[in-house]
């Protein structure tokens, strides 16, 4: 197990380097720049600015310089939000985005998996139909539809919760965003858990354990659940990507000052250091959560652990 973990961690850094290099290349080879006329800057000012930020140097020199700075934890200055470094911007937004994302993943896991188990164990034609209907609806309700709908119901009609906005340290403002983000994920997890548990319950080793008279509860808990959660754990990787992209929408819908807007606005503005910073932060997050999912798979299945 430890060997597996160490090997995966060792593979993280090269992968991250590939991501940084690819993104750097794509962003910088794209037409347009941060100080184009389109962005409302005169040519003379533009030349000055470019010199100031080192953008006039050859690309590979800039790339190496960027890497060197990165190694010291320096993401560089934001080109458009003067007076701020990228690091400061991230430090402002990340706590909110991370809280939102992690709460949503936790909520989806805690809600979706037990729901899926329950749906697999208590089956009836009516229950199966409702499960299928809810699952189909859940898959068809993207976060940018659920968000406004939840805001409409709980914020405007019922007036229980704030429609949008943010005050530091108040959970009320996070409740609807987390719910919006978690709901589709919980439905997907529940669907996956149910299907996979049903499959495992048909496995010969479950029948054989049942023949040993160890009791249904223990049977499900000790013998069936771990293998059934294997596909669920593998799904955590894509789920992270889902949460990260979903958080962009949710932050926009509920007006949360997270990091999502930096990515979108940064890309539109060609604010190179900001976009790169966001790519790196999200890249690390994705890789780490994928690693966690892999380790979970290893824990669930000794055959994977032993390679």
């Amino acid at each position: 197990m430890l060997k597996l973990a160490l090997r995966r961690i060792a593979a993280l850094l090269p992968t991250l380097l590939v991501i940084v290099t690819l993104s750097f290349a794509i962003i910088r080879l794209a037409p347009g720049g941060p100080f184009d006329a389109e962005q409302g800057v005169s040519p003379a000012v533009r030349a000055n600015l470019e010199r100031l930020y080192g953008l006039s140097k050859p690309l590979h020199v800039q790339y190496l310089r960027y890497l060197r700075a990165l190694a010291h934890g320096d993401f560089g200055p934001s080109l458009r939000q003067r007076d701020f470094t990228v690091r400061e911007l991230i430090a402002q937004g990340l706590p909110i985005s991370a809280t939102l994302g992690l709460c949503a993943i936790a909520l989806a896991l805690l809600g979706g998996i037990p729901a899926g188990i329950a749906a697999a164990l208590w089956r009836s034609p009516a229950a199966d139909f409702s499960v299928a209907a809810i699952a189909a609806l859940g898959m068809a309700l993207p976060s940018f539809v659920i968000g406004p709908l939840l805001a409409l119901v709980f914020g405007i009609y019922l007036r229980w919760l704030p429609v949008a906005g943010w005050q530091p340290g108040t959970a009320r403002y996070l409740l609807l965003p987390v719910l919006t983000l978690a709901l589709p994920l919980a439905v997907a997890l529940a669907r996956l858990t149910r299907a996979s548990l049903l499959e495992v319950l048909r496995a010969p080793y479950v029948r054989s354990a049942r023949a040993r008279g160890i009791g249904e509860a223990r049977l499900v808990w000790r013998h069936a659940l771990r293998p059934a959660l294997l596909p669920v754990a593998s799904y955590l990787g894509p789920a992270t990507a889902f949460v990260i992209t979903g958080s962009l929408v949710v932050e926009a819908v509920f007006g949360l000052p997270g990091t999502g807007r930096y990515l979108v606005q940064g890309a539109i503005d060609r604010d190179y250091p900001l976009v790169m910073g966001m790519v790196i932060v999200y890249g690390i997050l994705t890789l780490l959560l994928n690693l966690l999912a892999d380790l979970a798979c290893g824990w669930l299945d000794p055959a994977i652990r032993h390679g």
């Binding site: 992968t15 590939v18 991501i19 690819l22 993104s23 794509i26 962003i27 794209a30 037409p31 347009g32 990787g237 992270t240 990507a241 990260i244 992209t245 962009l248 990515l263 979108v264 890309a267 539109i268 060609r270 976009v275 790519v279 999200y282 890249g283 994705t286 890789l287 994928n290």
Partner: peptide
């Protein structure tokens, strides 16, 4: 795999900004 481990939105966002919106 490497492209997969990027949040897919990056790729799309970066590509959409390559050309006129």
């Amino acid at each position: 795999d490497v492209l997969y481990s990027l949040p897919y939105l990056f790729v799309v966002i970066i590509l959409t900004t390559l050309f006129p919106r």
